[in-house]
Amino acid sequence: MTPQLVPQPRAVPGEGHLTGEQFGELLARFTEEVGPEPTLAEAHLQVCEACSAELASLREAITLFREASDAYAEQELRGIPRWRLPNRSVFSHTFVPAYWFVAAAMFLTALLPLQVMRRHAQGTPPAVAATATVSNAASSAQSDEALLEDVNREVSRSVPASMQDLDDPTEDASAVNSESSNATTNERKD
């Protein structure tokens, strides 16, 4: 059922119904209270049933819109994970100097052995260090040479050392035969 927007008797001289702007002004207010000196629009509302009903209907619809939106948002918000804010930080400014002090101490502690090693290395005479380096290089070269010779020798063999025993199986057999013949001869002698 729609309200009948029939022309009403002009409550305000020179006015029919409320203009769009008047309607907007009234709607945009949160109150229907009329001040001691009502405006033309307010005075019109008091006598114009159509405008009054339309305004009430729109106000009601907007109120419903707000209530429904509010309830809907509230319900949706419940499904959102709660944000966990960090606890009050232990990194308070009060303790910052202490933290810096501890950090500096740890840094120095880590640095100290390195510094000692460095000084120790710097304390050795350069000539001795150079000699040691040369002798180390020479000994490593000798061992390398020996290793290479071993490898070369091993590679140049026709039969690997581990297979040497299997190289000529007849040697063992002849040895066995000669041993057995010797034994027979001895028996005959007996």
């Binding site: 729609t2 309200p3 949160f30 109150t31 229907e32 009903a53 106000r59 009601e60 619809a61 109120t63």
Partner: peptide
């Protein structure tokens, strides 16, 4: 609102809405 033909004022409006609009809300 008027075009949709639903500008009917509801019958059993809560009193606060019918009398004071947004004021009390």
């Amino acid at each position: 609102h008027n075009r949709s033909g639903q500008s009917t004022t509801l019958h059993n409006l809560p009193e606060r809405n019918a009398t004071t609009g947004y004021a009390t809300s």
